[in-house]
Design a protein around this nucleic acid. Structure first.
Lengths: 210, 210
DNA sequence: AGTTATACAGTACGATCGTTCGTACGGTAT
DNA sequence: ATACCGTACGAACGATCGTACTGTATAACT
């Protein structure tokens, strides 16, 4: 069997991580095992772990890639909307859409990682916590912008709105997936819109799917 | 070393399960291993697994015990309030209180289990999904009661309220624990109260902790 | 008092875990 | 032509996984 060239190597590292992101979104970052991942990739355990040094480094790289995937799917499109309420609305739509479209085959990656490490110390806990804090800060900044523009009720705290949006999205996604409730994402979207004072409609799904 | 009597045995089985509930609330039901659990309990692997037959049976017993613990901590006290809005308010308080008091050392057990099995088929998935559906039905029934009594806005769907309460509690608990945000639970409580049309105050914590 | 059932310990099993070797190959620089 | 570096393999490491089987001390029953 021919060895990989060094040009292939960078690509193979990236594809290993992407495969691991998909796997970890289902089984969790702790559910990754070198043997299974190597098998899926058609390579040896030693060849795989050799790229990263040890498992934790691999897990951190996987988490990093998942965050990038989330950012590309949710933040990037929404960032093209005007700051404030319009961007919050776009974030909600992109958020729900990325959940519905299966950007992560096992559901929201960050939610899975949050639950895995919320009670366990270590580098991965810190990485996940940092990522969630960053996202909450982004949401809060947009909410503050909308708040100062008078687009939100004066008595609502932007930080509270950020936490509510995050809770609704992550909780609604998990509950809907677990109970196989096809309406959960739309109802979660409506709740998120209601949180920022927008009407529930329009629905993201096509009318005949309702 | 003297063997246990059959009277002790039932107790030892129960205490094994309770220990496993605590462990699993931190590391997840998949994080339970026979060896570690047996070590913590001061007994042999074979002695432990002998009570249950296999690991999945143990996990299901652990899940069942965790649900009972949740029910005792949240539903039981709240069920003493009048059906409808008052009971919903009591549920919210008991819910937040049981999270704050560490009824489960690793955070909400059902949330952890939900995320673990939301994308993985099997008996445990079905058990968790059934438990969550049951809880959502309870919440929905109380919301419907309040709705019909005119205690909730007419345009709010009881099922939506149930899902929102569940999402807020589970999402807020995880985010607050992960980011070590001491205000998250109170803000989650306020959001849950707002969902059912109640004012944010009074706060559960003592004033000097604020 | 003898029998049966129960509750555990002990041991061993094959599988898989993460990791560490020694080695072989392709590509690049000297 | 030679030396070197990065990549990946195959084999093996000790540890731990879940499970099965055997032995035995005690409790409960006849």
């Amino acid at each position: 069997m021919p060895r990989r060239t060094s040009a292939d190597a960078a690509e193979s590292r990236a594809s290993a991580i992407e495969t691991a992101v998909d796997l970890a979104s289902i089984e969790g970052l702790e559910g990754i095992t070198i043997g299974r991942l190597a098998g899926t990739l058609g390579m040896s355990k030693s060849g795989l772990i050799g790229r990263f040094g040890d498992k934790e480094t691999l897990q951190r790289a996987v988490l990093d890639a998942a965050i990038q995937r989330f950012t590309a799917a949710v933040w990037e499109p929404a960032s093209r909307s005007a700051p404030g309420l319009a961007r919050l609305e776009a974030i909600i739509d992109a958020w729900i859409t990325h959940l519905r479209d299966g950007v992560f085959p096992g559901g929201c990656f960050v939610t899975t990682a949050s639950v895995e490490y919320d009670a366990r110390p270590g580098a991965l806990h810190d990485d996940v916590a940092r990522a969630v804090r960053r996202w909450l800060v982004v949401l809060e900044a947009e909410a503050r912008h909308a708040h100062q523009a008078g687009h939100l009720p004066a008595d609502r705290d932007p930080a509270d709105i950020a936490l509510e949006l995050h809770s609704l999205a992550s909780g609604g996604s998990v509950a809907g997936r677990l109970t196989a409730d096809p309406t959960a994402l739309d109802r979660t979207r409506a709740a998120m819109r209601r949180t920022i004072g927008l009407p529930a409609t329009p629905d993201l799904r096509s009318p005949e799917a309702r």
